[in-house]
């Protein structure tokens, strides 16, 4: 199964471009989308989910045009949007039955399927309460359950870990790993560590464009040897920020530990070279001066 996106552009108006001539090939496995706000991640996901039409460009699923025939992908799509809502007066069973009807899932097994999904996201005990009374994390879990209702082959998760506590995030990552064997999973997150743990490949976006798409080690290699750490006086931090791309700082009594990226090595600071991470690479690649 493959999703081939060619020269996709989404122009909202004269001044606002969601995607600009965007091309990417997506195969089975987990693709993590990283990018600052406004990079076009949600626009790309909405176009793949068929709820937004591209201005120009093509999108093929196993050779079939999805822009012209959106129902082709809708049958096998699981989509968890970033800012979704629910009908507050329905309980979890009724809500999932409704989504099942939308997805064209029925039959006598439907109830069992819903039971298993609710059990999987640990909502069985609350399944008969109106969803309007659920917490943010519980709503997010019902969102994940609905995405899996139709045994999807293409799964799109836009910021799926928002509202989940640390333990839930760990479980969610495991769930994604289990699903990844026979699905295309596209997942966006601001939390780089989520992507780092789950994604087979990472696509970094900025200003509606694809900066790079590769396996994590290859992306990290781009900043290998350029990431440093040093301990400086608190007063010197501002100067370093002016000079270098500071990734992170941490206060230690009167000193501040500074992690930064430098092409030259910044010998005047006598820094130690440290192992680069995906976060370093992401910040390096999306930095304004880049």
């Amino acid at each position: 199964m493959s999703l081939v996106i060619k020269n996709l552009t989404k122009q909202y108006n004269k001044h606002k471009t969601g995607l600009a001539d965007y091309s990417i090939n997506i195969e089975k496995g987990v693709l993590g989308l990283l990018g600052p706000n406004g990079a076009g991640k949600s626009t790309l996901m909405k176009i793949i989910a068929t709820i937004s039409k591209p201005t120009t460009g093509t999108l093929f699923l196993d050779g079939e045009d999805i822009v012209g025939n959106p129902d082709r992908i809708r049958k096998i799509l699981g989509y968890l949007p970033q800012d979704f809502g629910v009908y507050p007066n329905l309980n979890a069973y009724e809500f999932l039955e409704y989504i099942a009807a939308m997805k064209g899932v029925g039959g006598s097994n439907l109830r069992k399927r819903i039971d298993m999904l609710l059990e999987g996201v640990n909502l069985t005990a609350d399944a008969k309460r109106p969803i309007g009374t659920y917490s943010g994390g519980m709503k997010q879990r019902i969102g994940i359950a609905q995405a899996l209702l139709n045994d999807p082959k293409v799964l799109i998760f836009d910021e799926p870990t928002v509202g989940l506590d640390p333990e839930e995030r760990v479980r969610f990552r495991q769930l994604i790993s289990d699903l990844a064997d026979d699905c295309i999973i596209i997942l966006s997150s601001h939390i780089v560590s989520d992507i780092e743990t789950i994604a087979d490949e990472v696509a970094i976006m900025k200003n509606g464009k694809l900066i790079t798409k590769a396996a994590q080690p290859e992306i990290i290699k781009l900043v290998e040897g350029k990431v440093f750490e040093t301990l400086v006086d608190n007063n010197d931090v501002a100067g370093i920020k002016n000079e270098y791309q500071v990734i992170d700082t941490g206060r230690q009594k009167d000193k501040t530990r500074v992690r930064f990226i430098s092409q030259t090595g910044a010998p005047e600071l006598s820094p130690a070279t440290v192992n680069a991470t995906l976060e370093d690479a992401y910040l390096f690649l999306t930095h304004d001066n880049k």
Binding site: K75, V105, M116, N122, L123, R129, R141, V170, R171, L175
Partner: peptide, 29 residues
Amino acid sequence: PNTDGAMFAPTGINRALMPPLVTDYGILP
């Protein structure tokens, strides 16, 4: 009952154990 804050079930979601998918594209539901 309230599972607010509780994590996913330890077993997760095993799609292999799920009943077969039956499609129904009618509008009655």
